[in-house]
């Protein structure tokens, strides 16, 4: 009970500390479930002009055996969103994670989502994804593999 109350208090304080323009916020979620990838992605965005997604959460689970072990399944954080374009009918997101631990070889995963909504009234976005896997081998840039599929996102 106390920890729940503390969490609510912290969340309320965090919202209070946001700029005035960020008060009106919405949620964005994207899902992928196929043979290549399980993605459960959520973020908050501001309805104001400030733009951009924040408080990212979810998991990315890449199923290819070429994905380096520490990158196979991870919790998504704000730093993973390297590019975004969320304006008008367009939703474009790039999530990127690479190995960083001492002793780990260089390897990475990059997920690009490109989706559109059919009209201004519709907040459902449909599109495609491309997951590029850079395996942990010498000259891995030339041995990277890209798999593609479909993605659905919703904003509200």
């Amino acid at each position: 009970m106390t920890s729940k109350f503390n969490a609510a208090l912290i969340a309320a304080a965090a919202i209070f500390c946001l700029p005035a323009s960020a008060f009106a916020t919405g949620n964005l979620g994207c899902t992928i479930e196929d043979k290549n990838l399980d993605l459960d992605f959520e973020a908050i965005y501001s309805y104001s002009d400030i733009g951009g997604l924040f408080q990212l959460r979810g998991t990315l689970d890449a199923k290819s055996p070429k994905v380096y072990k520490s990158l196979r399944k991870f919790e998504i954080k704000d730093d993973d969103l390297r590019q975004q374009w969320f304006r008008g009918e367009d939703l474009k997101l790039m999530l990127y994670r690479e190995t960083v631990a001492d002793g780990e070889p260089h390897a990475s995963v990059k997920l690009i989502i490109e989706a559109k909504r059919p009209s201004e009234d519709d907040m459902g976005y449909d599109g495609t994804y491309a997951l590029t896997i850079e395996p942990a081998v010498t000259g891995s840039e030339s041995q990277s593999v890209t798999v593609k599929g479909k993605v659905s996102c919703g904003a509200g």
């Binding site: 400030i50 733009g51 590019q83 969320f86």
Partner: peptide, 27 residues
């Protein structure tokens, strides 16, 4: 605040906002 530099596209968005005791709102 937002960028997209992929394929043949390059999109950039810059944003600034002022809201304090001296300025009601400017962006």
């Amino acid at each position: 605040t937002q960028k997209w530099y992929e394929g043949d596209e390059l999109k950039l968005q810059f944003y600034s906002e002022l809201q304090n005791e001296e300025v009601d709102f400017a962006s």
